[in-house]
Design a protein around this nucleic acid. Structure first.
Length: 566
RNA sequence: CGGGCUGUGGCGCAGCCUGGUAGCGCGCUUGCUUGGGGUGCAAGAGGUCGCGAGUUCGAAUCUCGCCAGCCCGACCA
């Protein structure tokens, strides 16, 4: 292709509205333009890159025996009502009515539709397992679209669904996906981590996320370089740093003391001259409408996800001040596990196991208790409730943990029977008995692969995409198109590149060399063959975008040089 | 949904406080020039100043309402 004929609207200056690197550079390099909040036009370069990504995805999915479908984005409400998600999805779902007033929505994901196909057609164990996938558009009315293509309201997803007879079959389908995803992300040239993820309170037994480390990300991953442990912060476990001070010795009896106006952990800490780790933090939470008191070490944070898991609740929230007053007869800041007027479940974080003679609220405004020992002074029910904090170490080895910010590019998930049960998907087994099908679902955010690549690989001059997903592999740049010898040699090199099967572009624009170099670097083409002065000696330059390394090679060897480096 | 910020030619911005004929840089067009890192010169085109009301002789500028976008938070199957 000839650059002079292409629509590649690069910008000299940074667009004002873009902050994160991928957003800024995709705009500047002329890949995308915004249509509305969270809705983007993909121009020529973006579309080229996305097609390369989806081809890789398609090849690897096909390689595990998955079959490509293409389902409607426009969905009737019925299937969503069957699964219960018509209500669950709330405002995140785009909804509309047809001319007869029937409810429709734009699909956010396709478990329901895939399940509806399977239940209508799949009747026998002989037809299983199946893996069906599609590469298709998804719609989610995000509360806050942000960061360019990282969080949008319309995006492309590769979503697949597996159908198996039993858990062992699901294990196989799941493992196939895990490996396919690794192949996909490897081929896309990404550095990523596979991490354990929270599988929710609803029966999902296992889940992994594929994460790329980036400041632009929205998820936190706990990672142990020494042991290789990696988990989403929501799910991660760790060994906490020891309490700052040992507990008082002996079987002491709880004793009330006056703490006028001291409510927070820090205030009580300053007042008692004891570290936060000597206190028990009392958090009143509500899970699916039921109150619970969660106790943690004063310097620890509650993980709401873990608490939800312990309670088996779909959703947890902090109790409102009025609810707390009603249940405890005291205000937040003086709460504790002893003498609660109503019956309420109390759960303790495991970091409190073995602790004694601690400080907590007395359920009486402006009073606290000292010498409170879990298990002795109240019934202790220990669970993993704490969020991993900076400085924590590996549970197994005590090696240091890191907490890193990441972008989620893929997620694989054992669904279990959630949809097959709700929607009645079963087959006859060998003995002629009905067997509910077990399912898995697996997603890849296609645009996020592009974003993650830009986040990982960019510098002051622009992006530097992996050759496998760059819109072009090589650009041939004659330094001066008015010089017939240069123009002719460049044209010839370009033709050779094409003949060698490379995605090449000839920068035949009548521009100064600086302009062409800048554009090629901004757009992120991995290789450039520069045809300039030294052509007289039969020499051209091959420049690698990522390293900036320049090699002078004879004209006849330039194409081979690039090919060999790919 | 709460908090903050911003809307002025395609892009980046000034002008607004203190009301009086809309400006700069880049880009674009034409001509010349230059030809190894966004060349230089000259001449042009392009804007109902986000929308609507109000105040005023007069509003980009002041007041009110609305809309849109960005950032932080809440939220994120």
């Amino acid at each position: 292709m000839l650059w002079s004929k292409l629509f590649i609207p690069t910008l000299r200056e940074n667009p004002a509205e873009a902050e994160v690197a991928s957003h800024r550079l995709l705009l500047r390099a002329g890949y995308i333009r915004q249509l509305s909040a969270g809705i983007y036009n993909y121009l020529f370069l973006a579309q080229r890159s996305i097609l390369k990504i989806t081809n890789i995805v398609r090849q690897e999915m096909d390689a595990i025996g998955a079959q490509e479908f293409y389902l409607p984005a426009l969905n009737p409400s019925e299937v969503w009502k069957e699964s219960g998600r018509w209500d669950v999805m709330g405002d995140n779902m785009f909804r509309l009515k047809d001319r007869f007033g029937r409810d429709l929505c734009l699909g956010m994901t396709h478990e329901e539709v895939m399940t509806s196909i399977a239940r209508g057609e799949v009747r026998s164990y002989k037809q299983l397992p199946q893996i069906w996938y599609q590469i298709q558009v998804k719609f989610r009315d995000e509360p806050r679209p942000k960061s360019g293509l990282l969080r949008t309201r319309q995006f492309t997803m590769k979503d697949s669904y597996s159908f198996d007879m039993d858990a062992a079959g699901l294990d196989v389908s799941y493992e196939k996906h895990r490996q396919a995803y690794c192949c996909i992300f490897d081929r896309c040239g990404l550095r990523y981590m596979t991490v354990e993820a929270d599988s929710g309170a609803m029966g999902g037994s296992q889940s992994h996320e594929f994460m790329v480390e980036s400041e632009a990300g929205e998820d936190y991953v706990v990672h142990c370089p020494a042991t290789g442990y990696a988990a989403n912060l929501e799910k991660a476990v760790s060994r906490a740093v020891a309490p700052a001070m040992a507990d008082p010795e002996g079987d002491l009896t709880p004793e009330e003391f006056h703490t006028p106006g001291f409510k927070t952990i820090d205030e009580v800490s300053a007042f008692t001259k004891l570290p936060a780790s000597s206190q028990m933090k009392s958090l009143v939470m509500v899970g699916d409408g039921k109150p619970v008191l969660a106790l943690l070490r004063g310097d620890h944070q509650l993980s709401e996800t873990k608490l939800a898991g312990v309670m088996g609740a779909a959703e947890v929230r902090a109790a409102l001040p009025a609810e707390i007053q009603d249940w405890f007869g005291a205000a937040p800041g003086s709460l504790g596990p002893i003498g609660i007027p109503i019956k309420m479940r109390i759960v303790l974080d495991k970091a409190l196991e073995g602790r004694r003679n601690m400080i907590c609220g007395a359920n009486k405004d402006d009073f606290h208790l000292r010498n409170v020992t879990p298990g002795k002074d109240f019934k202790a029910d220990y669970h993993e409730l704490r969020q991993v904090a900076a400085g924590d170490t590996s549970v197994d080895t005590g090696d240091p943990l890191q907490i890193v910010k990441t972008v989620e590019i893929g997620h694989i998930f054992k669904l279990g029977y959630k949809y097959s049960k709700a929607m009645g998907l079963s087959v006859l087994d060998e003995s002629g008995k009905e067997n509910t099908v077990i399912m898995g679902s697996y997603g890849i955010g296609v645009e996020r692969i592009l974003c993650a690549a830009v986040e990982l690989f960019h510098d002051g001059n622009g992006m530097s995409l992996p050759a496998s997903i760059a819109p072009f592999t090589v650009v041939v740049t004659p330094v001066n198109v008015k010089d017939a010898a240069l123009a002719e040699a460049a044209q010839k090199l370009y033709t050779e590149c094409k003949a060698a099967g490379m995605d090449a572009v000839l920068d035949d624009r009548d521009e100064r060399p600086g302009v062409k170099f800048k554009d090629a670097e901004l757009v992120g083409i991995p290789w450039r063959i520069t045809v300039g002065k030294k052509l007289a000696q039969g020499i051209v330059e091959v420049v690698e975008r990522r390293t900036g390394k320049l090699t002078e090679v004879p004209v006849g060897e330039a194409v081979g040089f690039v090919l060999a480096a790919l």
